[in-house]
């Protein structure tokens, strides 16, 4: 009897192990599956357009009688909005994570966490609307610029959207540092600031880096808000207040209305492949940096 039950348990054990294995592998299958299908839709365009012109060309006029497919300006747009957004979001996000995890009392912490989660729950269309009708006039009058939907407007929105992710993950990373570190720092007579800067941040750097990179991913992939708030103007920005156009916004604005299988449609999928590659490079770089830190 006992042996039989053991046999049953063995089978159940194996079945569950298999199930979990499938769950683990499924992520890889999905990533490759999505990449494969996006690439399959976009690949035929490679034969029709010049790849060099695609990547560096400044003219994006896909619906003209003489279409040109250059996404150079769109790449610069995406990278510049993301960079400015991160310049705003990283100090705010990590600062807030440190405050929530180390400095504030329990009640403040609970309130702050709820409010920050609320910030993450605002749909991106609503952010876009705020950018278009609230921030735009504020920027025009505040900075004396001719147009309010621009790089800076989009970057502020993206920063606000990625701060909640950075705070939650950053806080978890700091929480994961064992209390013995804090106690040791305290015993050595370190001030609170020294404890945070010299002990906790270095100890939690992998987690903090992950927080920042997830924020970058959020910013690069965001669509609706940048579509509405950056002005969608195809040019290389010269100042912080020039309108720009991003890769994601272009796909969002145009994919719905292209007929399936046309060059325009395929090129939009090629932009998807490009976005995929950019995030891949960002993640790979992050992995290498983390590994490098570990080795030291």
């Amino acid at each position: 009897m006992a042996e039989r039950r053991n046999g049953m348990e063995m089978v159940a054990e194996k079945a569950i192990e298999l199930l979990i294995r499938i769950c683990g592998i499924s992520a890889i299958v999905f990533v490759f599956g999505i990449f494969f299908f996006v690439f399959r839709e976009g690949a035929p365009a490679l034969a029709k357009i010049d790849l060099g012109e695609f990547l560096t060309g400044g003219k994006w006029i896909p619906t003209s009688h003489q279409p040109r497919y250059g996404v150079g300006a769109l790449i610069v747009g995406t990278l510049s909005v993301t960079a400015v957004a991160m310049a705003i979001a990283v100090p705010f996000g990590l600062g807030a994570a440190v405050f929530v995890s180390e400095f504030c009392g329990r009640r403040t912490r609970e309130t702050l966490k709820i409010v920050i989660e609320l910030l993450a729950a605002i749909p991106s269309v609503v952010w876009g609307f705020i950018g278009l009708s609230v921030m735009s006039p504020l920027l025009i009058h505040g900075f004396h610029v001719p147009v309010g939907v621009n790089l800076f407007n989009g970057a502020i929105l993206l920063a606000l959207m990625s701060v909640p992710i950075m705070v939650s993950i950053g806080e978890d990373a700091l929480k994961a540092v064992p209390d013995s570190y804090r106690e040791a720092a305290l015993a050595l007579g370190a001030t609170r600031w020294q404890t945070v800067w010299r002990v906790l941040v270095p100890a939690a750097r992998n987690g903090l880096l992950a927080a920042v990179l997830l924020g970058v991913g959020r910013a690069i992939g965001e669509t609706m808000a940048v579509l509405m708030a950056t002005g969608h103007s195809i040019r290389i920005p010269e100042t912080l207040f020039d309108p720009v156009c991003t890769l994601t916004a272009t796909i969002a604005a145009e994919l719905g209305e292209t007929s399936k299988g046309s060059t325009h449609y395929q090129v939009l999928f090629l932009i998807g492949v490009l976005l995929f590659s950019i995030t891949f490079v960002v993640n790979l770089a992050a992995d290498l940096v983390v590994k490098g830190i570990r080795k030291r």
Binding site: S64, A73, L132, V149, M228, G231, H232, S233, I234, R235
Partner: peptide, 14 residues
């Protein structure tokens, strides 16, 4: 061709 640096809005209302 259109001037590309114009602001391309998605919808009449916008």
């Amino acid at each position: 061709e259109f001037r590309l640096s114009a602001l391309h809005m998605n919808g009449s209302k916008d």
